[in-house]
């Protein structure tokens, strides 16, 4: 059958474009005027009655809609191995290579 690519990473060109878009995108000024494409739900309106200065609140169902779209690794993310932020398996692997580098 056809390959299931639903879990595959976004192609590199989309990822790069996403990083650029994120860097240049401006902040939404009035959340209540944003029109989302069909099938995308807006934040629950009662959360942002009288909201101003970009101080918006978002319900979980609204936030979850971004999960599968926003996958670009943050440009400012430090090397995770260097701060020990890695799973136990990865840590064992890196530890082997680190000891051989003389640290």
């Amino acid at each position: 059958g056809p390959l299931d690519l639903s879990g595959a990473k976004a192609p590199a060109n989309i990822a790069a474009a996403q990083a650029t878009a994120l860097a240049t995108a401006r902040v939404i000024a009035d959340i209540n005027t944003v029109q989302y494409p069909e099938g995308v739900q807006s934040p629950r309106p009662e959360l942002n009655e009288g909201a101003k200065d970009g101080k918006f609140r978002y319900d979980r169902d609204f936030l979850l809609q971004f999960m599968s779209i926003c996958k670009e690794k943050p440009a400012m993310l430090p090397p995770l191995e260097a701060i020990g932020l890695e799973s136990a398996d990865q840590a064992g692997h890196h530890h082997m290579s680190r000891t051989s580098s003389g640290r």
């Binding site: 474009a17 878009a21 939404i28 989302y36 918006f56 779209i69």
Partner: peptide, 17 residues
């Protein structure tokens, strides 16, 4: 206004926290 839902690689607004 183009959100990430309109165009994942060329959006021009983001949702401030």
């Amino acid at each position: 206004i183009r959100t990430v839902f309109n165009d994942p690689s060329n959006f021009n607004v983001k949702h401030p926290l």
